[in-house]
Design a protein around this nucleic acid. Structure first.
Length: 576
DNA sequence: GCCGTTTTCGGCCCGACTGTTTTCAGTCG
């Protein structure tokens, strides 16, 4: 049982308890535990009971319930709740504007248990007369039902960012003197995003009209003096909050989150005799303002160094900020090379020269061209003969004047076949400058097959890097079932580096795995896997993952100067 | 249900907007 499966059951218990109108703090306990487990780097199912008990927010009771779930596949308490409420009732809870109280009311008064039930009841006017149900509520629910499928779920950060950046640019034109910033999960650099949170500090009240009147707005969901929500064409919800200029820092902090980070911070404020909200940090005694204009001042007043937004997840950053031991996070300018990209030789859109030129123009000092191998027939993958001929052409680009002296390595992205063999012969791989190996097929292998497959690839002496190690596609495909802790051990022993792939729907390794790999001492590379010159711009998303993984420049091999990077490759270290 | 530099009991983060209300409950972030 993987962490997400455990987390889902605990979250479901939380939802059901909420419908049941249970103690809100008990509900929070289940949700906290769910979050903790979803983000835990190790398989919680494989932990000893005492180790589970040591996890934050997991006490005797929850540890026992998790044990029950892992051992028997179910939690009796959960099953009992599902006797009381049908599981389909949870779909209702996720409708916009419908919360636990409404769900309970609908269920108890009208026996509504599914979305279809609700729609039928609405159309028959059966909600009228229920407490708190008026005409507007009725049409709000009907609209939520219609929109449910279209706007359901989350979106990739890259997609959200473009939409948000355009909106922010428009608002800045409206209020040039104000602080206008993206906040929320986008500012923290989360891989997906549910809505676009925007903050304006010190802006005139007319900015709100500019926001609700933005040309891309499909519908205004809420419209107040300090807070409004709109639906953007294409399905995003955007929220704008207006605060006074002197509250800029407090509001930035508050709305950036995460919720877990903020709860800890506010608790810390209370312990020190303060109160923290989106307007400032106040002394409880006399209500005096202590800090508010900058985030840094707020953290300082709480005895903390400023925590970078990407780390605000309550995963150890508070303790590090207190000890003044926060990492100096990597920035995009630290990267000197990109070791994974494709050309027209296989499924890329541009030839090697054009990719090299674009890389040079973006400021890189070196690249590796790594087209696909023959197993990827669909992509016109290279066999040994073509791979070596391609390599000769690529090497002819190395250091050329019209490429500004860019160093160009001839490599390959070699498929790892289902049995773990490499797709190309060793005497071909040995001729290349760099080999990255990756899995593109048979992604549904079981745990032992996929683990053995990766181990066997790592044992091949000519493999330098494993690309997109888990094979996940965000929002579309789960990570492979490989036991990553075992894969990490082997990668470390053999000197193989692991990739953070920058394609916005891969971001693989993810932040949690990348952090753990680094902690083990494994070399990390950040690569675009670009199939076109513009895709080289995706480097920023990989850097974002690296920052969320607490990585510093020194942890990432392609921040090194070319000669040093090259010497760090497994084939050049005599590590085989 | 968790947790402890005041604690093993009694706390647990905070505020805005909407709709249906005549002072507030529900929802959301």
């Amino acid at each position: 049982m993987d962490n997400l499966a455990i987390a889902r059951v605990l979250a479901e218990i939380g939802d059901l308890l909420e419908i049941k109108n249970e103690n809100p703090f008990k509900i929070r306990a289940y949700r906290n535990a769910s979050e903790t487990i979803a983000h835990h780097p190790d398989r919680v199912a494989a932990l000893a009971p005492a180790e589970r008990l040591a996890l934050p927010g997991i006490g005797k009771d929850l540890a026992a319930k998790i044990g029950e779930l892992v051992d028997s596949g179910a939690i009796a308490y959960h099953q009992d709740l599902l006797q009381e409420f049908p599981p389909t009732i949870l779909d209702l809870l996720h409708l916009q504007g419908v919360g636990p109280k409404t769900v309970a009311l609908l269920y108890h008064q009208l026996g509504i248990r599914t979305l279809d039930d609700l729609e039928a009841a609405l159309r028959e006017g059966r909600l009228r007369g229920l407490k708190g149900m008026g005409a507007k509520k009725e049409s709000q629910m009907l609209r939520a039902l219609e929109e449910r499928t279209r706007v359901a779920g989350r979106r990739l950060i890259a997609e959200a960012y473009d939409t948000a950046a355009a909106l922010v640019a428009t608002l800045r034109e409206e209020a040039p003197g104000a602080v206008i910033a993206l906040v929320g999960s986008l500012r923290r650099g989360c891989e997906t995003c549910g809505d676009l949170d925007i903050l304006a500090a010190g802006a005139p009240a007319t900015l709100m009209e500019a926001f609700t009147g933005y040309r891309q707005v499909e519908r205004v969901l809420a419209h107040g003096d300090t807070k409004s929500s709109v639906r953007i064409w294409g399905g995003f919800q955007a929220d704008l909050r207006l605060v006074p200029g002197p509250s800029a820092g407090a509001a930035l902090q508050y709305f950036t989150g995460s919720k877990a980070h903020n709860i800890v911070l506010r608790d810390r404020a209370i312990q020190r005799g303060f109160k923290l909200n989106e307007y400032g940090l106040y002394r409880v005694d006399d209500g005096a303002l202590v800090a508010g204009e900058t985030e840094e001042a707020i953290y300082e007043a709480l005895g903390l160094a400023l925590v970078p937004p990407e780390l605000r997840e309550n995963r150890g950053e508070i303790a590090a900020a207190e000890a003044r031991s926060l990492p100096q996070l990597i920035v995009q300018q630290d990267l000197r090379g990109d070791l994974h990209m494709h050309t027209t030789a296989t499924d890329g859109r541009a030839d090697a020269w054009a990719m090299a030129r674009a890389a040079r123009d973006s400021g890189l000092e070196y690249i590796a061209i790594t087209d696909h191998s023959k197993a990827l027939a669909m992509a016109n993958g290279l066999d040994e003969r073509r791979a070596l001929a391609h390599a000769r052409e690529i090497r002819a680009l190395d250091g050329r004047d019209d490429l500004g002296g860019l160093r160009v390595l001839a490599g390959i992205e070699c498929d790892i076949l289902p049995d773990g063999r490499l797709d190309l012969a060793a005497d071909c791989l040995s001729e290349l400058d760099i080999v990255i190996a990756s899995v593109h097929s048979a992604l549904d292998q079981d745990e032992s097959q996929m683990t053995d497959r990766l181990l066997r690839a790592i044992e091949c002496p000519w493999v330098d890097v494993i690309a997109h190690p888990t094979g996940r596609r965000i929002l579309r495909r789960e990570p492979s079932r490989a036991r990553m802790d075992v894969v990490f051990d082997s990668a470390l022993a053999h000197g193989v580096a692991l990739e953070i792939n920058c394609q916005p729907d891969r971001l693989d390794l993810d932040d949690g795995l990348a952090r753990r790999a680094r902690d083990r001492g494994i070399g990390i590379v950040i690569d675009t896997d670009a199939h076109s010159p513009t895709a080289l711009g995706n480097l920023r998303w990989g850097v974002t993952v690296a920052r969320r993984a607490w990585l510093q420049a020194a942890d990432v091999l392609n921040t090194r100067p070319f000669d040093s990077f090259r010497a760090s490759l497994r084939r050049n270290r005599g590590a085989r």
